[in-house]
Amino acid sequence: MRPPLLEVEHLSMRFGGLLAVDDLSFAARAGEITAIIGPNGAGKTTVFNCLTGFYRPSIGRLTLHRGGRRHLLERLDGFRIARDAGVARTFQNIRLFAGMSVLENLLVAQHAPLMRASLYSIAGLLGLPGFRRAERAAVAKARDWLARIDLLARADDPAGSLPYGAQRRLEIARALCTGPALLCLDEPAAGLNARESAELNRLLLAIRAELGIGVLLIEHDMSVVMGISDQVVVLDYGRKIASGPPADVRRDPVVIKAYLGEEADEELPPDIARDLAGRG
C-alpha cells in the first residue's frame, strides 16, 4: 500500500442553515483516480472548493503529503494550495483566459517557476539568458501538452474560440502545467460526446500511468467513473454513504437507492442499469 496523498478528515461545510458537507472522511492516493459521485446537490463541488481554498471549511482537516512535507490545506490561501501544496483544479463551467491564446494559457500556469527565473521581472526586462532558457523550457512543456491534447495547430488562437471539447482538454492541460501532485477535475466529461468522452478516459489513464499523480474526479458520466477510477466515494446530502472500488459501489443497494429515490426497489430502468453497470 502506498501512503495516502490526500487525507480528508471530518470535513464539514455549513452555509447558514445548510450543511452542505457533513463529516466527510476519505483518502486519495498518488497514482490512483478517486471519483466522487452523488446526485445533484450532494456537495461534491463544495468538497472541491474546500480542498482548493475557495471556501474555508467549517470543521475538518485536509492534509496533503507532498515531498515528505505535510500541507494543511484548510489553513492555506487558495493560491498557496495550488503553488505550494500542488493541488490543481478545473472548473465545472470552464474558466479559461478566453481572450488569451492557447499557448499563453499554458504559460500562465507556469507562472511561479517563470517568475523566479525572471528574477521577479528584472532579469526578464534585461533579457538575461537564464530567463530565456526558462522561457524556452516553459514553451517546450506547453508544446508537449498541446501535442498530447491535439491542439498544436491552434496554439496561437484565442482560447475562447476553441470548440467546447477542446476547451475542456485545454483546461486539464493547463492544470497539469502547474506540475501538481493532485489534480481535481470537476465534471470533465460534461457536455462531451461519446467519442470525446472516450478520449478523455484515455488521457486520464495516461496521466495516472505516466505522471503518477493523484486524480480526484467529480463526474456524472458513469461510463467514465466506472471505466477508469480506482476508488469511488459516494455522497448524498453531504454525507458519505459508500466508498470502495467501483465494482463494489455499483452493487451497493444504498447507492442505488440514493440515485433513484426511496420508492425504487431493485427494479432499475434499463438505461440507468446499463449506465450504472458501465462499460469497463
Partner: peptide, 22 residues
C-alpha cells in the same frame, strides 16, 4: 514577461488565476 501575462490573466479570470497558484 510572466508578470504581464499574469496581469492579463487576472483581467480575464481572477478565480482561475488563484487556482493556478498566482
Amino acid at each position: 514577461l510572466p508578470i504581464g501575462r499574469a496581469w492579463e490573466a487576472l483581467r480575464e479570470d481572477e478565480i482561475a488565476c488563484r487556482a493556478l497558484g498566482i
